[in-house]
Amino acid sequence: MTSAALDGLEHDDARYSLDDLLTLMSVLRDPQYGCPWDLSQDYASLVPHTLEEAYEVADVIERAAHATADENTVLAELPAELGDLLFQGVFYAQIASEQQRFDFHDVIHVLTTKMLRRHPHVFPDGSLSSRREGVLPHEVDESTVNARWEQIKQQEQLTAYEPSVLEHSVAESGSDGTSVLDGVPRGLPALSRAAKLSKKAARSGFDWPDIGGAFAKIREELAEVEEALAEGDEAHAREEVGDLLFAVVNLAHTLKADPEQVLRGTNARFETRFHHVESAIAAQGSSLKQATFPEMLTHWHAAKQREPHR
């Protein structure tokens, strides 16, 4: 790292740029001037931090959506959290650049190319020039856009194995060993991955014709949990609980709800109610260990009554 590069961090303008961030990252990873912690990181060690930063972005948005006060106060946290998430991508790209694999500019190029390809209704000729020249986009509805998006993604996955299969339609997937479920990351949280698997299968026609089927499946899986427990087979019961959870995810899909999102909302409500239980019991000069479960339930229901009706 040259002194000139280090001097680049001294910024006279009021706002830093993306180039400043890339310079900062290269200095952090510099063998001579860098930070020991940053130098010790690799792709694998960054993954937990990347997931944490993504969830912190989601947390700010969720808290803003349920804010009892001014949501702008909560959303003021979003630039910092988005910056932390962006920094993860910059970090991965810096490591790759050191290994002479690719750099952050390659990431931007690949992303822009992919988004142009996936939005033919907005960029008819697959380039930014069409919009710059005033070419009007195609008028399509959201369902058509979603269907085309999935088709393009499927074609992208197929071409990773054999370029010629770009000519295939999505309906033919499976004939060459591929699946409509390909591309759902295995590293996703189980609830999010279940939602994506369910959604992809449904788009291929594997879905209940109405919400009644989803309810029936939940009742079926719950009965199988109870049956396994009645037989004393806890291992089987645990498997059936997994099936029950997946059936509930299908219900969420039928209701056009993101199960991860609605569960985060439930988690927030649970925390608020339980904090009320703790405070109410403490106000009585008691503790959770001393209180009975019926007493806790009384305070729990009182907390629910205090919530605004939805």
Rank of each mutant, 00 (worst) to 15 (best):
E56S: 07
S286M: 08
R63H: 14
Q100L: 10
F270G: 00
T292R: 06
M296K: 06
L222N: 09
A5R: 14
Q261P: 00
E139I: 14
A147V: 11
A54H: 04
E71V: 12
T298K: 12
P259N: 05
A194R: 00
F206D: 07
D12H: 14
L111K: 06
L166Q: 10
A171E: 13
R310L: 12
R101C: 07
E167S: 14
F104I: 13
S26D: 10
A160F: 05
A64N: 03
N250Y: 00
A214W: 00
H168D: 15
L136Y: 04
E10C: 11
A147E: 12
S279C: 03
L251G: 00
S279D: 11
A282E: 12
K199S: 11
V90H: 04
R238C: 10
A201S: 06
E62T: 15
F87S: 15
L39G: 10
L18K: 09
P163K: 08
V170D: 02
Q157Y: 09
G83E: 03
E240Q: 14
L9Y: 08
A5G: 09
V135G: 04
H253L: 11
A252P: 03
D207M: 06
H253T: 03
Y33L: 13
A80I: 06
G174K: 13
I211M: 03
R118H: 10
N250D: 10
V74K: 03
V122F: 10
N250K: 05
H66Y: 14
P137E: 06
D125K: 08
R219H: 15
K289R: 13
L21C: 09
D84M: 01
V184D: 01
G213I: 00
F270W: 05
L18W: 08
V145F: 11
A69M: 07
F87R: 10
S175L: 14
V249C: 01
A283I: 07
L263H: 13
D125N: 09
R15F: 12
D210Q: 03
F270P: 00
I281A: 07
A237V: 15
A235W: 08
K199T: 13
S17D: 09
A280G: 07
V248D: 00
A76L: 12
A190W: 09
S287M: 05
T50G: 03
Y55H: 12
S97G: 11
D38M: 15
K289M: 06
L28M: 11
W208E: 07
E142A: 13
D38I: 15
G183M: 02
D233T: 08
T50N: 01
E260V: 13
D125F: 10
D176M: 14
T73L: 14
F270Y: 06
H301S: 06
Q41M: 02
